[in-house]
């Protein structure tokens, strides 16, 4: 668990604090996305957690321990760190890059080698092909795979990721988002993820913290942020298509109804989202679809009315408390 308590940071020569009395609790094993327009304090907040930036006031506790009681160097070795430009060491091989923290920690060479191969495999880079290559021989997407493997090397419970997919083309970005979501969820890491891309936040986050001028505007699950934006700023920030974004988070199965008669002719996979289903309906010009499971068995029907009902049941959300 990460507790950020009353954090304040003002950089010299700036008119207002970059982070202004921010309080935020991140649960173990959750992906917390910090998002907001540039200058909202999201990166500053993240960089306080591994003491790359020293705040003016407030504190951070990682698993109950005040980070300011821990030597910055050993603190950083215990927290995974991934940045947008990756920052691989160009003079080291891929294996040496992945082994950065284990080598700093003085692991035995045999253990380092096993771990390096294991991680390269995990991020989809065959060790026997890539182990001895150097960073300049890799594509942008491959570099970031290595960047994530490097951050995971010493198995840190907490990972900080600063726009890790921001420099990639949209196709590579979408692929890596999907892959890393599975990897990181599987490893049960607590992740602080900074982005300015709301679609990425919705896709990656268990919870999204929307920041503005160094303060927290709304902190909630993606579903709730889309269903009930705390104010007009959040509403504008999530965009006019928030109804559609919301549908993309709801699986077909949650709106699927038992269907006694003949199944509708057009089908949709059970693991698809309501957004996919809606697109399918518009495409086929129908108002109902047969929901089928992985073995093509009919499990029920999905109607346009059911989708409507799900997009409209936005429960009102109390405004989150602003801390003084």
């Amino acid at each position: 668990m990460i507790d950020i308590i009353g954090l304040v940071k003002q950089f010299p020569g700036t008119a207002r604090p970059a982070v202004d009395h921010l309080t935020l609790t991140i649960a173990d094993g959750e992906v917390c996305v910090l998002i907001g327009p540039s200058g909202c304090g999201k990166t500053t907040t993240m960089r306080v957690i591994n003491r790359m930036i020293e705040p003016d006031a407030g504190t951070v506790k990682v698993r109950g321990r005040d980070i300011f009681d821990i030597d910055p160097v050993s603190l950083r070795r215990s927290i995974g760190y991934v940045i947008q430009q990756v920052g691989l060491f160009p003079h080291w091989t891929i294996a040496e890059n992945v082994a950065t923290v284990p080598r700093l920690l003085g692991w035995k060479p045999a253990k380092i080698r096993t771990r390096t191969d294991e991680l390269l495999t995990l991020v989809g880079m065959a060790p026997e092909i890539y182990r001895d290559r150097v960073p300049r021989e890799l594509s942008g997407g491959q570099k970031q795979r290595v960047g994530v493997a490097r951050a995971l090397a010493a198995d840190p419970p907490v990972m900080l990721m600063d726009e890790p997919f921001g420099a990639l083309d949209p196709i590579t970005r979408a692929r890596l988002q999907g892959e890393f979501l599975n990897i990181l969820r599987g490893l049960k890491k607590t992740i602080v993820f900074v982005t300015h891309d709301i679609d990425e936040a919705i896709r990656m986050g268990d919870r999204i913290a929307i920041l503005k001028d160094g303060a927290l505007v709304q902190y909630d699950t993606p579903e709730r942020i889309l269903a009930a934006p705390a104010d007009s700023f959040v509403e504008a920030f999530v965009g006019a298509d928030r109804a559609l974004k919301r549908l993309s988070l709801i699986p077909v199965t949650s709106a699927c109804e038992p269907w006694p008669g003949t199944p509708p002719p057009n089908t949709i996979a059970a693991e698809a989202s309501l957004r996919d289903a809606l697109a399918r309906m518009l495409e086929a010009d129908v108002d109902r679809l047969a929901v089928v499971d992985a073995d093509e068995r009919f499990v029920g029907a999905l109607t346009l009315q059911a989708i409507r009902a799900h997009s409209a049941d936005a429960a009102p959300v109390a405004r989150i408390q602003r801390f003084p």
Binding site: V73, R77, Y81, V86, L104, L160
Partner: peptide
């Protein structure tokens, strides 16, 4: 930055 962030 990466080197520092990883605890060098």
């Amino acid at each position: 930055d990466a080197a520092r962030g990883m605890g060098m």
